[in-house]
Design a protein around this nucleic acid. Structure first.
Length: 294
DNA sequence: TAAACGTGGTT
DNA sequence: TAACCAAGTTT
């Protein structure tokens, strides 16, 4: 391990300062942890908390969710965004109940085989739900490593090497490794933030290369800028989904297209394009001139 | 491999 | 206020 002092400092800080998030409760089941990881993909903790609690209350096991229509998952997803995740989580629940006897698998390869689970989520579940020793790398971890280890203001594009780097920093023991994974994420989320890092509260400030170098403005070539949301197909899709979530019955397709245009569009073909893409994604089902959740 | 994918909080 | 950013995955 490259920096034993660094790992010890992160773990001590985490033990003292970690937020008491419900999915970190020792009583949290692997399924509850898996659900939290799905919801937290690209979505902030504060917005997830109430949806997660309601979800676990209603569907305490994968089989409970699998027994419902996928549309119920989309409805319960509410406005968390990226509603395909709700569909994928439902599909994963079906797969777990059918292939794994309703028990979330602990093996990374088996987790990766589930719908909607990629390199981050598979390892997060294996580590946080089962205590196994793997590197867990998310956007927070990548930023902390970029700054503290490489002296860069920001992380570059995600790369396979990120896992190797984190592995090299991981404590040998499973427990210490799990805490370190969580601690690095927490550090990036609440202290080593993207915009205004709170270095005065940072447990590894003394080892931070970026701080040591005087905070150079040396961020690597950045990811392409996020497209403007206003006027986007994403926004138009969102309008259709909002209508269908609140409708207990199927709505005329014409109404869905009208809702898509409500508020203005940049391109007159947008409502149709957005609607068709939702059907293609399986988020909308059309039957006899009406549209509804799947 | 790059583009597509929601929604809301923060600066 | 507009731009940035967020516990990523899929095709």
């Amino acid at each position: 391990m490259a920096h034993p002092e660094l790992a010890r400092a992160v773990n001590e800080w985490f033990a003292a300062h970690a937020r008491a998030l419900p999915w970190r409760d020792p009583e949290a089941t692997p399924w509850a942890i898996l659900v939290s990881e799905f919801m937290l993909q690209q979505t902030q903790v504060d917005r997830v908390l109430p949806r997660w609690a309601a979800w676990i209350e209603r569907w305490p096991a994968p089989s409970a969710l699998a027994a419902e229509e996928p549309g119920e998952a989309v409805r319960a997803w509410d406005r968390l965004g990226y509603p395909r995740r709700a569909l994928w989580l439902h599909r994963a629940a079906v797969e777990i109940s059918e292939r794994h006897d309703d028990a979330v698998p602990a093996d990374v390869e088996q987790l990766l085989a589930l719908t909607g689970i990629g390199p981050y989520t598979a390892r997060a579940v294996a580590v946080f739900a089962f205590g196994d020793r793997h590197p867990v790398v998310d956007t927070n971890t990548r930023r902390v490593i970029a700054r503290a280890v490489h002296g860069r203001a920001a992380a570059g594009m995600p790369a396979a090497g990120d896992l190797v780097e984190m592995e090299a920093l991981l404590p040998e023991d499973r427990g210490g490794a799990a805490v370190f994974n969580a601690g690095m994420m927490e550090l990036g989320a609440v202290v080593c933030t993207a915009r205004a890092p709170r270095c005065g509260d940072c447990p590894i400030a003394d080892w931070c290369e970026w701080r040591g170098a005087g905070y150079p403005d040396n961020a690597p070539a950045q990811r392409p800028k996020q497209a403007k949301f206003a006027g986007s197909d994403r926004q138009v899709r969102g309008r259709i989904m909002a209508l269908l979530r609140r409708s207990e019955v199927a709505v005329p397709v014409a109404d869905a297209l009208a809702a898509a245009a409500d508020g203005g569009v940049r391109d007159p073909r947008q409502p149709r394009r957005a609607y068709d893409s939702l059907v293609a994604d399986g988020l909308v089902v059309e039957l006899e001139g009406t549209a509804r959740l799947p």
